[in-house]
Design a protein around this nucleic acid. Structure first.
Lengths: 181, 181
DNA sequence: GTCTATAGCATGATAGAC
DNA sequence: GTCTATCATGCTATAGAC
């Protein structure tokens, strides 16, 4: 499953065969089908793992000083893997994008990681006392995902770094203008 | 080729077969190979058409009052097709994302539409007298692409509409704080 | 130039020995 | 549970009649 997650990120879901995954994981192809009845089942498992990973990441920010620091820590997570993002895109964003164009169950569940991030970020903005916290969360995650897309398109990790700095100062100014709660 | 462009947008490049495209265009499969020697050639033709489409779009903004109006007209183009974007994502962004993960010639050319938009937008910000016009162009297109991605992920056209309004006011305030040229 | 038929191959999935 | 062999299908690409 870890191999699947890595290859789905690097090659995309429909461009990655189960033979690729089995070889990368150094297991026979038949074994994959013992644990995952179909390819979609395996993709779904990756999606669930991503959702849990996102939840764990946000839990890790709980100890930070305040909502603004937590939001900035969130953004910095993409900066920390900027080389990977500039090469293959955001692992959540690219998988979500690909699954989205289908019209089965997987397409419906594909947005789970994004939804988790949006809900959490909206909570932070709400704690700051900002108006329209849901829209601010969307603006923040849009900035992250758009920057990741462009950094990958241009193959430029520094682009991501610059946009992360921009988002940090945007968070600060948004927090500064919010009414005290 | 128009059928190819439509299906690549709706289903993605690797999920769309040449048989799909031929059927949609109501031509026999063999004919596709008469005009495009390989599937990659056809994908490349779609990419070139997108690049020309983007260039024509920006040319169409030349008659508008000023740079800020032109930039807002650019953003509004995504709002005008918000239902399509919310269903299948941005046609440029999703194709760029998919082709990006390969390492052949197509991957290198995939960013052409994005580059064209970035260069044009940077020119508008420069005309406004803004500092760091290249970074501002990236921030603007990041906002567009990120919003398109999230609108598609959540299947919510209104999300795109709200972010477009946000970007419009961001353009206005950025223009207002720029030194006169 | 248009169209049919099919070669050649990769893939998702399964059967069944161990 | 593990692994090999293989089926069935769909795909890219080509051959060749018209």
């Amino acid at each position: 499953m870890a191999s699947a997650a890595e290859l789905l990120h690097q090659q995309g879901a429909s461009a990655t065969s189960l033979a690729d995954i089995a070889q990368h994981a150094d297991v026979p192809l038949g074994n994959v089908y013992y644990y995952y009845r179909t390819k979609d089942d395996l993709v779904r498992a990756v999606l669930v793992a991503q959702t849990e990973q996102v939840a764990a990441m946000m839990d890790g920010f709980a100890g930070l000083g305040g909502p603004a620091e937590r939001l900035k820590a969130l953004v910095s997570r993409w900066d920390a893997m900027r080389d990977l993002v500039a090469r293959y895109g955001c692992p959540f964003g690219s998988l979500t994008t690909e699954l989205n164009r289908r019209d089965d169950d997987l397409a419906r569940d594909a947005a789970a990681p994004m939804r988790a991030i949006l809900d959490w970020a909206a909570g932070q903005f709400r704690e700051l006392g900002c108006a329209e916290p849901d829209d601010l969360a969307v603006t923040l995650l849009s900035g992250i995902q758009g920057s990741a897309l462009l950094a990958a398109a241009l193959g430029d990790p520094d682009l991501l770094a610059r946009q992360v700095r921009h988002l940090h100062s945007w968070i600060d100014s948004t927090a500064a203008t919010a009414p005290k709660r």
